[in-house]
Design a protein around this nucleic acid. Structure first.
Lengths: 209, 209
DNA sequence: TAGATTGTTAATCGATTAACAATC
DNA sequence: TAGATTGTTAATCGATTAACAATC
């Protein structure tokens, strides 16, 4: 939409704003002030207004922002034109939790297939999506036109999977496996690593000091 | 340990470094260079060295850092002196996944109890920890001396839980419920919100532009 | 020594906040 | 109008990177 990509933190907040706005809309509200949205997210009203300024949204009244219009506007920024298909690697508790949580939440972003190495899971429908054999990764990516991977596989298979992902048409990976994803340098694949232990250790540190 | 807390990003990286270093140690390595650690994490060697400078760690050789010493040093920063007890609210797939993943990973940070409202779960031992009734939250926090909460409960009970958490001795919350935690302002409770949809939407945005 | 590495300050970059004009 | 709100620039803060001296 814009030439220069928006700041990372702004993109994250836009996603969060939209989630909140959908809630307000479902609750019957039509407008909200920048300070209302801000306090829901524990940030300042200035930050909300600056984010909206950056995407070029403005209200035509002093009664706050039109919720429906703002949702549409943010959606035009965040959503791709055609739906993007996501695959989940690893159908343990975490993979199933995320797949179930996603169900019908976003129509431009959908989990369509999962992969696992457990023969009891392969072939079955789990959390609403078909589970395929991890050895068929390349074919499955093509077949389902997967552009992003949610990685919840155990650590011992990560390096092998990395090689396969690097050779595929995958554009982005959310890595929840607990070890950093190396070997994707230069591939242009966008990687986000999240580990619950690191998050907790951070909270632990800052609540002690 | 220090007067002024270390930067947030440095703390996150220290946690990640330690995880990687434990792996190298288990693999039999004794030393590693800043650029080795850096490339594993997809960052620059300067950043690694600066982080270590900030915590006051230095190597006495030109053969890189002593892995064992560095692990000990980082642990002195990150770990509390006495173990901290963590409770998980919500024992669905996500709660179970995290609880299982945590098992025996860190001896100064342990999940000791979970809470749920499902009668079939209450009273049982799930993923290795006892599951208690969510209505007993206050008593459970006292009984187990819980300082941090991992929140994976469904959205409709979050606001009620927030009130109870605010009135307790909880110091930090990792909120994975998918809606922002409001109403904790001024309580001094450190909150980290993570939502998988936001993470994926961010990856989606930056892989399109 | 020459080359590789560490440790540290200064410069830069990215993100937030302060300040304030404009509008209803 | 007065007060509340939005939109935007400038200043500040926080984090990363460049530059380079010191060391083995």
């Amino acid at each position: 939409m814009k030439k220069r990509p928006l700041p990372e933190r702004t993109i994250e907040r836009l996603s969060e704003y939209r989630r909140t706005l959908l809630g307000y809309l479902a609750g019957g509200d039509t407008h909200l002030y920048s300070h209302t949205l801000a306090s829901t997210h524990g940030i300042t009203a200035v930050q909300v207004r600056r984010d909206l300024m950056l995407i070029g949204f403005s209200s035509d009244t002093k009664k706050g922002y039109n919720i429906e219009e703002l949702i549409t506007f943010i959606s035009n920024i965040l959503d791709s034109e055609t739906p993007q298909n996501v695959g989940v690697i690893g159908m343990g508790n975490l993979g199933r939790a995320i797949t179930s949580y996603f169900k019908n939440k976003r129509d431009k972003l959908r989990i369509v297939v999962s992969l696992d190495n457990n023969p009891e899971k392969v072939g079955a429908t789990i959390a609403g999506v078909p589970c395929r054999d991890i050895n068929e990764l390349s074919e499955v990516i093509k077949q389902y036109n997967i552009s992003m991977i949610l990685l919840t596989a155990p650590t011992n298979v990560i390096s092998e999977l990395t090689t396969q992902i690097k050779g595929s048409s995958i554009k982005g990976v959310v890595n929840l496996s607990g070890i950093p994803l190396t070997g994707l340098d230069g591939s242009g694949i966008w990687v986000e690593d999240y580990d619950i232990i690191t998050i907790l250790e951070k909270v632990s540190y800052f609540t002690q000091k």
